[in-house]
């Protein structure tokens, strides 16, 4: 049990896993919107419709891995910290965005091979999904870059050594 938790936390890699995995949905779903829009202007022919479809499914598959790693990282944050609440909003927004893209995917399955433009409903879903995802990803980034979640956690020993060499006042180990 513990080994599977450590696996999901990325200890074996020396790097948290969640921020690595999220590159895929974070790139794929906004890219799907870009491809959807390009298809409206008849750029790239049917290729844009197909690419949007492939991008959405690739994002969905990766998001299945992003969820457990993210929930685990979040569960390590103390509830009284501001990052806990941000993490909660981040998670809820992500789940909604993933759900919207799953519906979006279902709507495209029939005709993505032949269609030359993406229809209004899936296009709208891409818009809303991307907007929610962008807001959510920003919150995720704030957790790292403002609140330092996962920062200097695995490198703690290294920095302690550097601080000791720099004759800093330090807490007992």
């Amino acid at each position: 049990m513990k080994w599977s938790l450590d696996l999901l936390k990325g200890k074996w890699l020396g790097h948290p896993l969640h921020p690595i995995i999220v590159h895929v949905p974070m790139a794929m779903w906004p890219s799907a919107l870009i491809f959807d829009l390009l298809s409206q202007w008849q750029i790239g022919g049917n290729a844009m419709v197909r690419l949007a479809f492939y991008a959405i499914i690739f994002g969905l598959v990766a998001s299945l891995l992003a969820v457990p790693t993210g929930v685990l990282d979040w569960s390590g944050i103390k509830k009284e910290k501001p990052a806990w609440k941000i993490g909660l909003y981040h998670m809820m927004l992500n789940l909604i965005a993933a759900l919207l893209f799953a519906i979006n995917f279902g709507l495209r399955m029939q005709d993505f091979r032949e269609a030359t433009t993406v229809a209004g409903v899936p296009l709208t879903l891409s818009f809303i999904g991307t907007a929610l995802l962008t807001g959510s990803a920003y919150l995720g980034g704030r957790m790292t870059y403002t609140y330092g979640i996962s920062v200097a956690r695995m490198s703690k020993a290294k920095w302690r050594k550097i601080a000791e060499a720099g004759r800093a006042n330090l807490p007992p180990e």
Binding site: W159, R160, I162, G166
Partner: peptide, 10 residues
Amino acid sequence: FQEFCTHRYG
């Protein structure tokens, strides 16, 4: 003052 924070040595 010392360069390193006393929490995670930032």
